[in-house]
Design a protein around this nucleic acid. Sequence first.
DNA 1: ATGAGTGCAAAGGCTTTGCATTAGG
DNA 2: CCTAATGCAAAGCCTTTGCACTCAT
Lengths: 145, 145
Amino acid sequence: MALAEIHTEVITRLRQNHQRYTPQRREIIEVLAKVGHPLTIQDIREHSNDLAQSSVYRNLVVLEEFGIVIKVVTNGDIGRYELAEDLTGHHHHLICSQCGVVRDVVVPQALEHDIDRVLAKIARREGFSLDHHRLDVIGRCSKCR
Amino acid sequence: MALAEIHTEVITRLRQNHQRYTPQRREIIEVLAKVGHPLTIQDIREHSNDLAQSSVYRNLVVLEEFGIVIKVVTNGDIGRYELAEDLTGHHHHLICSQCGVVRDVVVPQALEHDIDRVLAKIARREGFSLDHHRLDVIGRCSKCR
DNA sequence: ATGAGTGCAAAGGCTTTGCATTAGG
DNA sequence: CCTAATGCAAAGCCTTTGCACTCAT
């Protein structure tokens, strides 16, 4: 989805939920879309001009609530955010266990399908409702090797 | 691996790295082995008698450093720990997005193999060294539905 | 107009660290 | 013995919250 489309979509979703599309929210979306991989709150602030820390936190909560961004879990320390998959497409993460940097990757449809089939069965057996799966690759990035 | 074997293995690994096997460390291993799924620091302390908070934190760092326990990432808030896979076997996690509880599950060998093959290729292409993969199922547990 | 959103600063909550004491090898 | 490990309390760090002000609709 192109940046313009993303903005349109975000506006629509916020409006539907009686949320305003403020310059700050637009700025956050813009940064996430441009960079294209999960960012920490600090990253987001550094990539933009004068976003108050509390506003970034609060806006990410709202954006996450309405399925516009998601919180990505890496090494468990600090939170990272990226645009939701229905804005960018389903993908997985290559995570550096040392520095925590994350890169998006896609895997073949056939594998996705196999995984979903197996997991659906497992979730049912364990009494869980299945939301989605998360497949991450943990390693060392080229810089941290 | 049975509890007795796990203790033996832990002792060996700690000794090899000039670490002591104190009653506190033994207690932590015992709790993790008995419960059989990832626990928070609070959980660990509640399942045992008088473990000082700071000692639990410090010991988990040591145990993780020598591959005896691993930190499990769930919803990104609080850390959870479990015995490393070479003590318990390779498995994945069923995570409740609401309460954060984690249950261990195993998937068919064939699927594991397919995943590893694909991910190895991807990691190589991106200049990452491949350590391991993480496949989680996110949903709602029976209590939180 | 008017309540959601913002920014600043203070408060929270989990985790880490300093330091004197204890005890494992 | 002698240094690692412990326990308590203090400090850190990311995140959340209170409150008065501003602005999107």
